[in-house]
Nucleic acid binder design. Structure first.
Lengths: 246, 246
DNA sequence: GCAAAAGTGTTGTCCTTACACCCATGC
DNA sequence: GCATGGGTGTAAGGACAACACTTTTGC
């Protein structure tokens, strides 16, 4: 109860203090962002990593991250990291979670906010190749620097759920894509097989696919039709989700 | 491109520096947690707020929040806030999002991580009543201190989605509850009417309701059966969500 | 006996699943 | 011509939506 009393007293007396002083009295700590960049290539889900700078994590891989500057919000920091580290601009980034365990960084307390993104690894050649920036198969990583394995697992779970309610996956594909490609992405991310006919029916019935009247070329089998995704229609008609189900 | 070069240089030369120095070189900033405590009373959804301390927000309501201490992770901070401000212990708290706009606090830059919780307002009498701690109808708030209205709206959206895939709602009810109470909660949160027979069928078929063989008492109509929720069964059988739908 | 909510079942529609054959291309 | 994946339809089962009457209690 003494804690409570103390806290109450502190709070009540602050009313007249300058609000800048109040904020200045708060403890501060370093904040970073980490980006979990998912890509798709060779029919499997990849994640973009670099080798850690730190001797503590020699030869270990880690996420793309950096400090958050003092006049920069988290979204801006995440975008900056992506540009600085990969040369990739203007991709969809989504905040996933903030990790704050006290001992997660060997250099002291660092809180990190994690963003995830999906992008077509073929569209974006990696402009910058410091620290061996590389795509890694998501399922084969066993150890990483910091708590980045835990973060990656968290984001992978997030991604599996997210792609089922949002057409995120289209960021992994070129503008024009075949239904086979689309299905491959879902199968890779969800780590499951889907029935081809039902998958096609599902997407056809959603009405978000625009037939480009073009076909695949140079494939060693019957070429498939190429489609575009109708983002405008999607924006207009996206689902109002009501359905209790757990 | 000069930015990139600079950044690359900075990074590369840090390999041998002490990692503690590295972290010490990061800019630091104050971090807070804010708790969006949802409650249910009088058949409507409430949120727990206090009057702001700050003259800038005189007579405005705000969320329960506090600084994050330097040796405390975010979950601990959120729980502490709840105990200090309300006396309520050991409730389910879930991290929702981190807000970081530069100008969200008039006293300077403050980043805040927001947690949400649901609890039965009748179970927890508010032990501490500083700053007019009060339950407010969620839908009637127009203005709040800081960016707290925006945060509340975000959390309300989060909640509407979350209760459809997770039996969170049971935190709002006493251990034994009637199906009418359960339905009222869903209707209040989703802001919609549900068919009574279908609702009951749905829950009956999920198999998570335990009939207590008790009935409501002192009601002015035919008394309903009281049920408990079978959390063990739920843990064992909860859904592996696969179903693309957007 | 009246008000208020509990309790209960059926039908039609839609969505999901499972499943097999012919077709177009590269080699 | 053969290997590879493209393209297609149907039937059965399950989930969901719509809908009305009788029952039990307090007053």
């Amino acid at each position: 109860m003494s804690d409570l009393t103390k806290s109450t007293a502190t709070k009540s007396n602050l009313g007249n203090k300058n609000v800048v002083e109040l904020v200045a009295s708060y403890p501060t700590m370093p904040l970073t962002v980490d980006c979990v960049i998912f890509g798709f290539d060779d029919n499997s889900l990849k994640v973009l990593l670099i080798k850690s700078d730190l001797p503590q994590f020699y030869e270990k891989w880690c996420l793309l991250g950096d400090q958050v500057h003092s006049r920069e919000d988290l979204d801006a920091a995440a975008n900056r990291v992506l540009i600085e580290r990969t040369g990739i601009k203007k991709v969809y980034l989504e905040q996933v979670h903030t990790f704050s365990q006290l001992d997660r960084h060997p250099g002291g307390r660092v809180v990190t906010t994690v963003y995830a993104s999906l992008l077509n690894s073929k569209d974006h050649s990696l402009g910058i190749s410091e620290n061996e920036l590389k795509w890694h198969p998501v399922n084969k990583l066993v150890e990483m620097a910091f708590d980045h394995k835990e973060i990656l697992d968290f984001c992978y779970g997030w991604l599996q759920k997210r792609i089922q309610e949002h057409p995120l996956v289209l960021n992994l594909l070129p503008e024009k894509f075949s239904l086979r490609q689309l299905q491959n992405v879902y199968e890779a991310i969800l780590d499951t097989k889907l029935d081809r006919r039902n998958f096609r029916k599902k997407f056809a019935s959603m009405g978000f696919l625009i037939d480009t009247n073009e076909m695949e070329t140079h494939v060693t089998h019957r070429p498939g039709k190429l489609y575009k995704f109708d983002f405008d229609q999607y924006q207009k008609r996206k689902k109002n989700w009501v359905g209790i189900d757990f």
